[in-house]
Amino acid sequence: MRPDGERLHEERTGPSIRPTNDPRAARTRQMIFTAVDTLMREHTATVSVSDIVRTAGISRSTFYAHFTGLDVLATDYLRSQLAEISQSGVELRRGDLVSGTLSARIGYRRLIAHMVEHYPLYSSVLELPPTRTAHNAVVDAYAGQIVQSMRALGPVPAGVNPHVVANYVAGGALTLIGAWMSGRIEASDDELVEQLTALLPTWLLEPSA
């Protein structure tokens, strides 16, 4: 069931901070992601930096050393989920465990379920104008995963630019999911999955060998 228009309390500052390869930094970022998961399980309607640092047991300065705001956190968190979903889909297709269409349905179902569960965090990325840069970053990350999947599963048809198709698919899917989550599109979860799958190019579902 999708939320009824709750909005994220936005806290932002400064430019994006890139993660480093420092294992301590990786542990801290994971603590922040775990805190987000904990808050979402509590079915909170909004989330703030104060909520996250309290749950993670870290200081605000530590949070801002890794993320300049909630929009950047949401972008990085969704990027990690997209990578997991994409890799899972490639493995299913490579192992001939499911058809391309069923793999797409599974992937969209996982994405929708994850975004609904984390709606208070993702609403900023998908809905609020001040975070357009974060929205674009999510689309870029999603498109990048789609391009990787295309290359892993086989050649694209002659004359097709994979980056153009990937941006079209990623931008369209995230826009539709965002509209559905905010109540601008009326559909059940399954109906949304079917529509998203039907909009994919046939060759992307069943690429030629």
Rank of each mutant, 00 (worst) to 15 (best):
V53Y: 07
V138W: 00
R79V: 00
H163M: 12
E91N: 10
S80C: 07
G69V: 14
E84G: 06
L176M: 14
N161E: 15
L73W: 04
Q30D: 07
R41T: 02
I106S: 12
T13R: 15
G172R: 09
T131G: 06
T38N: 09
A25K: 04
S61R: 09
T131K: 07
P15G: 04
S99R: 05
T202C: 05
R184N: 09
R7K: 08
S208F: 02
M181F: 00
I106H: 14
H114K: 06
E91W: 07
W203L: 04
G69W: 10
T62K: 08
T38V: 07
A25P: 12
G178N: 06
T55Q: 11
A26H: 13
S48V: 04
H135K: 11
E42A: 15
P23I: 12
V36L: 01
Q81N: 04
P120F: 03
L204R: 03
N21G: 14
E191T: 04
V72G: 12
G14K: 08
T62N: 08
L121G: 03
L126T: 01
H118K: 12
R110S: 09
E191C: 06
E6K: 03
V156E: 15
L174M: 14
L153S: 12
N136H: 10
Q195D: 06
A152W: 07
T28P: 04
P129M: 04
H118E: 02
T62A: 15
R60F: 02
A113H: 07
I112S: 05
V125D: 01
V116N: 03
A152Q: 14
E191A: 13
Y168E: 11
P15L: 03
A158I: 13
L128M: 11
Y119L: 02
T133L: 14
A137W: 00
E117D: 13
